[in-house]
Amino acid sequence: MAAGTGSGSTVSAIFSPVRIWLLLPSWVSIGFFLLLPVLLMLVYSFLTKEFRGGVIWEFSLASYDQFLFDRGLFGDAPAVMKWTYINIFIRSILQATGATILCLLIGFPTAYFIATRPIQSRTMWLFLITVPYWVNLLIRTVSMKFLIRDTGPLNELLLNIGLIDAPLHVINTNFAVQLGLFYSYLPFMVLPIYASVERYNFTFSEVASDLYASKITILWSIILPVVKPGIIAGSILVFVPSLGAFLAPDLLGGAKTFMIGSLVEDQFKGNAGNWPFGAAVSMILLSLVLVVLMFYVRAQQRDQT
């Protein structure tokens, strides 16, 4: 509220008579080109797949059925749980979790370090951390692929130094994918934690130290709980995109690391695709993400009461 311009109004309302017109473009464009499509996608997941890759507008639970059950060639056979697709989801969740943990291990100390630098250099550090993010994700993933290939520079270096005898086979493994995801989303972990640590009052640490607490104890019992909101925010910001990621699994992983992103991509390629099934998988992914977000929002609200 502007000083001296009076009491009462806490939110400026100068443009309120025309706000509808100002907001309409964004509402229409996002509502029509995103919200509506998502709803349409929901509808599609309940349609029947057409032979040549399109859809027949006929209601069917075939997609969700296909996701969960294996009915063999004859649709009337009793349902046997098929784990293929569920496994893909579980794997994706595990990969995303792995990436998140990696980001935490490296990101937390980094964020903490930057937040405790003198004020002038802080922006510079943050700038350094975020600049790589602005480089095209595809290029970053490709460069990571190039680096860790069996014949790549990393292995070359390690072989030359003599640290290893045979090339580290990193590419096409789960770890490679997690590394790729970690590389893609690290700044998302660093920034929220940085914001939290910056707000932390280090007098608490001084008081604790005065009362004989060791630095480790201070970190674990005092700093971490205070910084928790930043850690959770960062984790969500890494976990959610990792779940639905396509590039890292596709370029850095292999058949054994098949994830949701690739599964969905497959359904829309040419004639072999299954649009309703792809829609169904996307819906399941979206629901998963919404659940995670809801937990987050609830946890935020609980924290504030």
Partner: peptide, 16 residues
């Protein structure tokens, strides 16, 4: 402070 004088002024100006 808080007696309403500024509010009154703003009403004459047209902001409230």
């Amino acid at each position: 402070s808080g007696c309403g004088k500024t509010t009154l002024l703003r009403m004459i100006a047209g902001f409230e």
